[in-house]
């Protein structure tokens, strides 16, 4: 319990490192030095010191958007185990709550975007809900496959059980399919290439960035911070499966969890360096593929005795 209280502050503290690492990797591939991995912290500090500008069209929903986005992502972290550290709150079925608090954040981000009455932000909002509708089944089916193999129903006990021993049992290797699905979902939900390009400044090609076009100052800072927390939350799901280090020594497991997250961030950087954005019509196919991976894994894994 003492240890599980540690994960949340650590995540809140270290999450902005992830976009920093991604950018560093991208700079390396482009042959640049690139900004320091701590640059996101400096950006946040700067944003938090500014004032704000609001459109006259907007209402309180626009102001609520960043608040709900940050609060709901933090709530997801409360349910999230990392490495050997159990989550602060764990109970059978918490994986559903995890998916749905993230959906709450999405609902309000989309509503805030629509509140501006801008065609650009409406476009981003429309695409966001479209991708999310397809990635939700893939995520929950993937978690169901893991639950079936581990015989457990909460994220904490699920990830604690999925050590090398369980993964090498008959049916266990099929969970690699789930890992692939989780990585696709990680990229889609965090609006990374090949789904969305966080770097373009042409609003038509963006999804998440265009939805928050009108936010400014501290509120934009909250949104950026919430985005890095979401990278952390979904990244931990994927890395916990890809690097199943379960030594039983909490500090070692925690270290492994951190390494796993950094590996996922580097992987994202590599993907963003070597791939282009997919055409929008292809996105549904990739998300359907993720769902297909999850279903396939569900068929292949053996349920725990």
């Amino acid at each position: 319990m003492r240890l599980s209280a540690l994960h949340l502050p650590l995540a809140l503290l270290c999450a902005p490192l992830l976009p920093g690492i991604i950018n560093k990797v991208k700079a390396f591939f482009a042959g640049r030095t690139g900004p320091s991995v701590f640059q996101p912290y400096l950006d946040l500090l700067k944003l938090l010191q500014k004032g704000a500008v609001y459109s006259r069209t907007t209402t309180w929903v626009f102001r609520a958007g960043p608040i709900v986005a940050l609060a709901s992502t933090t709530a997801a972290l409360v349910l999230l185990p990392l490495g050997g550290l159990p989550a602060l709150l764990a109970f059978p079925g918490d994986l559903v709550l995890f998916a749905y608090v993230l959906a709450l954040g999405r609902f309000f981000t989309v509503a805030a975007a629509l509140d501006t009455g801008s065609a650009f932000e409406g476009m981003g909002a429309s695409r966001e809900v479209w991708f999310a509708a397809l990635s939700e089944p893939a995520l929950l089916l993937g978690l169901a496959a893991m639950a079936k193999q581990a015989g457990k129903l909460s994220l904490t006990s699920l990830y604690a059980a999925l050590g090398p021993a369980v993964l090498l049992k008959p049916g266990g290797p099929a969970l690699l399919l789930v890992a692939a699905a989780l990585l696709i979902i990680f990229l889609a939900e965090n609006s990374r290439i090949p789904f969305d390009d966080p770097n373009t400044h042409l609003e038509l090609t963006m999804i998440h960035e265009v939805m928050v076009l009108d936010h400014s100052g501290p509120e934009f800072g909250l949104i950026q911070y919430a985005a890095s927390l979401k990278l952390w939350a979904l990244g931990a799901l994927a890395s916990g499966l890809l690097l199943p280090v379960r030594t039983g020594v909490p500090w070692l497991d925690l270290f492994a969890g951190f390494c796993g997250l950094f590996v996922v961030a580097m992987f994202t950087g590599v993907v963003e360096s070597v791939m282009a954005r997919l055409r929008l019509t292809r996105v549904s196919q990739l998300l359907a593929a993720a769902a297909a991976f999850s279903v396939l894994a569900l068929m292949l894994v053996r349920s725990a005795p």
């Binding site: 500008v53 609001y54 459109s55 006259r56 501006t116 801008s118």
Partner: peptide
């Protein structure tokens, strides 16, 4: 802080 009001950014 300074709070500005303007048109939606288009």
């Amino acid at each position: 802080r300074e709070i500005g009001r303007s048109l939606t950014w288009d």
